[in-house]
Amino acid sequence: MRTIAVISAGLSQPSSTRLLAEKLAAATQAGVDARVEFVELREVASDIMNNLLTGFASPKLEKVIETVTTADAVIAVTPIYATSYSGLFKSFIDILDPDSLAGMPVLIGATGGTERHSLALDYAMRPLFTYLHAVVAPTGVYAASSDWGSDESSLSKRVERASAEFAALVRESDRSSLVRDPFALPAGFSPAGALGAP
């Protein structure tokens, strides 16, 4: 059984971002035996800002960070604002240890008012997770407002395709069983220094 953390950065209630996140999670579960844990960033929005200002996470936020960074895989869905991921979404990413998502399978998704911003997935979301050394599934899913009401919508097909690719990555992931040592010293580290030791 794998664990998937599902990050939703939607701000409204109910939220189409959350709706897309749920569709992606359910479709992924059809392809791999996995438990999903939803993380609504709105619920820790002020904690995230406080963390940016003070450098530490509140106990509530600490749990959310733990959920995300110790999962086997992550589904990350954000609304697109002004051509990119929302500020709340990026602020959450900013407070994570930059190494904490290395090797993490990630399925990216986004929502927006118009299809015209669908490429934000590939010029904003994908490079962000590439920088974090995550393994981003080849297909991302963008849902415009019109996708939710159109018969000819290919949204379900896109969700299925992306989730099938992602499920294959989730099956191979053993990240949740990795032991993390916060006090691991870098290889070759000497407290006396490499040079000049008595």
Partner: peptide, 26 residues
């Protein structure tokens, strides 16, 4: 930084934790 804790331990020097800006658990 664990490297600095390691350094203090290696020399048998003191270790001071600033402690004021972060939770004590850290």
């Amino acid at each position: 930084s664990p490297e600095i804790a390691e350094q203090a331990a290696y020399y048998g020097d003191g270790f001071f934790a600033n402690n004021i800006f972060w939770p004590k658990e850290h």
